[in-house]
Simulated scan of single mutants.
Amino acid sequence: MALAVNKPADYDDRVFLNCPFDAKFKPLFDAIVFTIQDLGFQARHALIDNSNVVRVERIASEIASAKYSLHDMSRVQLGKNKLPRFNMPFEAGIAYATHAMNPYQWDHHIGILDGIQYQHNASISDLAGLDTKVHEDDPVKAISCVRDFLRKKSARKLPGGKHVTDRYLAFQGTLAVAAKKNKVKLSELKSWNYANDLQDLMASWILQNPS
């Protein structure tokens, strides 16, 4: 598996988000990505194309290139096909190997997100003891979960969850105008297909409206 070898200049600011890409999770994804960006970090995820067509290699490279990674375990239950969803635990395993084996001698910090307290312990008990934050499928709570994780692991002075939430709501209030300006439908802008477009808008808004 091809992993990143050269340490990126922005390594200390990169946060990789491992999460389900389903309709129910999209509001949480948007809130989490905004929070990461608004706190001065850089949100990375599998939807960012680094030209590697092999998805698992792209993800492994992203994890190895980030000082922090967040792994959402709220969708490991059985799906319609009666099978569990292994993607998120598998990617968390890659991150843990990066943390534990430390192949490049770079620190890597792992955070676990879940929708229900202790739910992941029933299916992935080996994760017990890692830093777990519960968002209850609520974007506002997800914002505080991410803020608290980054505050603890980075030891940086960061604004509180309420402050970031207020800014996120203010940003959301600009989306209708932004969609029209960029000649896209608001529904498109909020879809998974436009996740990177929305992230770019977040970055621009944050730059124009410093915290």
Rank of each mutant, 00 (worst) to 15 (best):
M1K: 11
V5L: 14
K7A: 08
D10S: 10
D12Q: 14
D12K: 08
F16M: 10
F16L: 06
F16H: 03
C19H: 12
C19T: 11
A23Y: 14
A23P: 06
K24P: 00
K26C: 01
L28T: 03
F29E: 04
A31Q: 02
T35N: 08
T35Y: 07
I36F: 15
D38R: 14
F41C: 06
A46W: 13
V53P: 11
V56P: 02
A60Y: 15
A60R: 15
I63N: 02
S65I: 11
S65K: 08
S65A: 15
A66Q: 11
S69W: 07
M73L: 13
R75L: 05
V76H: 01
K82E: 08
L83D: 09
N87D: 07
P89C: 04
E91T: 06
A95R: 01
A95E: 04
T98S: 09
H99I: 04
A100N: 10
M101C: 08
N102I: 11
Y104L: 15
I110P: 01
L113M: 04
D114Y: 01
Q119P: 02
A122D: 10
A122R: 09
L127P: 06
V134N: 06
V134K: 06
D137I: 00
P139H: 03
V140D: 13
A142E: 02
I143A: 04
I143P: 00
S144F: 06
C145F: 05
C145M: 06
F149S: 01
S154P: 08
L158W: 14
P159D: 13
P159V: 11
K162V: 13
H163P: 04
A170S: 13
Q172Y: 01
G173W: 00
L175T: 00
A176V: 05
N182D: 09
V184R: 11
L189N: 05
L189E: 02
K190Q: 13
K190T: 01
N196A: 05
L198G: 02
Q199Y: 07
D200T: 03
L201H: 12
M202G: 02
M202Y: 14
S204I: 15
W205H: 14
L207D: 15
